[in-house]
Nucleic acid binder design. Structure first.
Lengths: 324, 324
DNA sequence: CTGTTAGCGCTTTCAT
DNA sequence: ATGAAAGCGCTAACAG
């Protein structure tokens, strides 16, 4: 039924060790190698990964934990993670955690269970106690401790850039709209530095910062907009929130971008080659994914890596800001 | 370093067989079970999946092959596949094939390599020679042979429904725009039955059917629209094509939906809870994913399953058709 | 350069 | 009900 190395060895008239060496590029005489390779071909032999993994404690698999792959930002990220893993001969386990700490923990266990070699995680729940420096883990956008490797887009520069881009387009009264969780993460800097830059520019700034999980978002946004009719430029924590704001603003009869300009954050695109749907501070999603993979593979290999990697953002035009 | 079953057995004063039985719900005296479970807890013992897999030839992993997860339709599908796999304690390997037969083959090999138990595939390339009835494989939207299990949305009903919905909204001159590949698949029926239904309704219908891979799509669409200015209702092979058509039509100054109505196919939504972006024939993505998982797990378990499952579609309003 | 052999950690008879 | 023991298919150390 299933072809094993033993059968290959027998048919080729060599020992199993030799077959193993052929597979793993050990030193084998050219003629022997050929002979073995021919038999492998004939028998269509495929090495059993689980047997190999049991011996070597290497699975060549990595798990990616994210809230949901059904989301433009995360699906693009997952796409690039899988791509760069592929080029290194690693496979990807996908986990939609929905922010469920339980499920995130389950995947983290997989490295102890020798089911994956490491993990890339975009997590917002409280799983700090499971994460330690000896776990091969690369965190995206979320800071755990000194020792946990993490990769993020430059929220400070992003917050500042959003303020400048709005100011450049003539906005006089800015605002920030976003949500937050208890756990510390990069996204909080979007608000912080946006406000600082507004101050530096001498522009007034208000903010609507809601504790997650969010409920009645539209209602709160509406109230905020009604309470502050003078606002002509809004920076949102992410593109998703920008869509919400657009929906409410249009329902209120505000013209975008002529009366009200909006800049999101993330740089969501629904598929490869698609345009940005809102003006946004775009994260370098592909670079972040590739960096995360590179770092994780290095960590798995036992190398010492840079703990903190911050990648540059850029402003991207998406129709919700004036063209200048 | 790593806790093994042997250490658990020793510390609990039992044999390894007993520990194994505790883990696998074998018959163990209650008191023994408690004792063992306590030690497992204390030592934070985690069974090694690769050792288990080697013995049992079961990996509790499934691979999902799709063109790209960075796409609303596929990412929603992947989301639901992972969700329903999760509820059955299976894990998901994700493969973005980009239609690369080579890479698809690589993943198909993984079942021979004992790395996954089975595969769910949305594939359009020529991999027929790798697919056989004794491979645990569930195909989505693509018909291989009698023996290969497949799940699809009802394209016949979808094509017909699109025609009726357009007719109902007053369209007099319909058209179909889409692409096709050499390999046979469900999507070809979208055109076929759309045309048949138009005939039945006595409505004129034209079509622009382009061989993939598509190049200069916009140019072709533009020419088609210019050549046939009387067209007031278009059915596209999928939502993606609908966006392309909208772009061209608007550039040509056609008002949507007042002058030109468009119905896509797929029912793409960019994230959970998001609205449809175009009027569309929506596939029951969640149900398809769940059905695919159920079928695959049954196949893996050696059960005989229904080879052909066709799930119902529905019309979904998305702003590119008149409200009636 | 290559054959032999001892496990990797687990499940599963086989006795008891 | 449970301990002992035989492998699952592979890698790697060892001896030649």
């Amino acid at each position: 039924m299933k072809v094993t190395m033993k059968e290959v060895a027998k048919k080729a008239g060599v020992g199993v060790g030799t077959v193993s060496r052929v597979l793993n590029n050990g030193s084998v005489k050219a003629s022997t190698r050929q002979k073995v390779e021919k038999v492998i071909e004939e028998l269509d032999y495929q090495p059993d990964f689980y047997a190999r993994g049991l011996k070597t404690n290497q699975t060549f698999s990595v798990a990616l934990i994210l809230p949901s792959v059904w989301h433009p930002f995360f699906s693009e990220f997952a796409f690039y993670v899988e791509n760069s893993l592929e080029s290194r001969n690693y496979k990807l386990y996908l986990c939609n955690s929905s922010g469920n700490a339980e499920k995130e923990h389950e995947y983290i266990q997989m490295v102890k269970q020798n089911k994956v070699d490491g993990i890339i995680g975009i997590t917002y729940s409280n799983i700090d106690k499971y994460i330690s420096s000896n776990l091969p883990f690369v965190s995206i956008d979320r800071y755990f401790t000194e020792d946990v490797v993490y990769v993020a887009a430059d929220s400070e520069a992003g917050g500042r850039l959003a303020a400048r881009e709005l100011e450049k387009r003539g906005c006089q009264q800015l605002a920030y709209i976003g949500g937050y969780q208890e756990t510390p993460n990069e996204t909080k800097n979007r608000l912080k530095y946006f406000e600082l830059e507004c101050q530096r520019l001498g522009i007034s700034v208000k903010s609507l910062n809601m504790l997650e999980p969010l409920t009645d978002v539209s209602k709160h946004i509406k109230q905020f907009l009604l309470d502050n009719p003078e606002i002509d430029g809004i920076f949102t924590i992410n593109d998703s929130m920008a869509y919400d704001v657009i929906g409410v603003a249009e329902a209120l009869g505000r013209k975008i971008p002529s009366e009200l300009q909006i800049i999101g954050f993330d740089g969501e695109r629904t598929r490869e080659g698609a345009p940005y749907q809102v003006s946004t501070i775009a994260q370098p999603i592909r670079e972040m994914a590739e960096m995360a993979v590179t770092l994780l593979i290095d960590v798995i290999a036992g190398k010492t890596v840079e703990k903190r990697t911050v990648l540059p953002i850029k402003f991207a035009e998406g129709g919700t800001t004036k063209v200048i």
